[in-house]
Design a protein around this nucleic acid. Sequence first.
DNA 1: AATACGGGGCG
DNA 2: CGCCCAGTATT
Length: 358
Amino acid sequence: MEEGKQSLPNEISAVLIRWYETHRRELPWRETTDPYRIWISEIILQQTRVAQGLEYYLRFVERFPDVRSLAGAHEDEVMKLWQGLGYYSRARNLHAAAREVSGKYAGLFPADYASVRALKGIGDYTAAAICSFAFGLPHATVDGNVYRVLARLYGLETPIDTPAGKREFAVLAGSLLDPARAGLHNQAMMEFGALQCVPRSPDCTVCPLAGRCAALRQGRVDELPVKAGRTEVKPRYFNYLHLRNGGRTVLVKRTGSDIWRNLYEFPLLETGTPVAFDVLRDDPRFRALLGGTEYAVLHRVAMPKHQLSHRTIHACFYEIEVEAFPHPLPPDGCVVADGEVSDYAVSRLTELYLQRRG
DNA sequence: AATACGGGGCG
DNA sequence: CGCCCAGTATT
């Protein structure tokens, strides 16, 4: 295609793509156009750094190389593979979506934006990523990197974490997209944010967009992007009962709409404040579990504060030898041999406790 | 429009 | 200790 006169090509896109060609990292999900693998990588990388997600990705696609293998798995195995990554609804939704693709689309990943966007766990960002990377469809990805690059480049003070802000940035990102090279453009924009236009102390002296950057011109690089504000971090108090009898223990599957859904843990007594054992002992829930048996507390392990994004968990584990396990067991509870506890997906907190005991 | 949902890394 | 990370779903 010759342009006798510049038909106003997207210069920003061109600069980003040129920068990308020499600075891009070699990453396994960039070696393929298989929508399945791209999908897996995008879900894993949601709110997750490349360095943290890489090993999970490799293990995941090795164990589940295609949609059908994932669809055919038991959810507990998917959760186990996800253990430690956080945001566990990603794993549940991935599994559910795999079953939907397997059934509704005969195992063939849908190739249009609306169908992809409709799958569980796939929002605007991930749908655009899959469609542009795998199918070359002209949809702009807007992730944390893109917000940062655009807020700085255009000096935008609109908070990025409000619906209005998201709309504004999505429109802008779409207007910058080079539709003929959507996938390349999106990769370039995000990689640029990840490596060059970094959150703290970017080196603007080597930035190819320095001459066009409003934030740099105004000395406001470190003030952008703007976020509306953070929600309060509230404390929770978890008292776990690690019951033991004859080389076995009791695990309970977490259900309901709370953290760590579908992960396993020891029977839990959550309290509104920190409580000593002699108070716990009189709790009706404790009596329901151990009221009918002799027991002896072997150890008490107070864990360091466990910090989540919006919760601080103060946890204490009581290792208790019991004469008999509770009957009936708590809902969703099961008796497990000590050696098989590691087969179950558990929270990082419980994993840390198990490691500490040795 | 807010809030919930994990865990790790970095200054 | 606060902020950020290839966000999405629920309320």
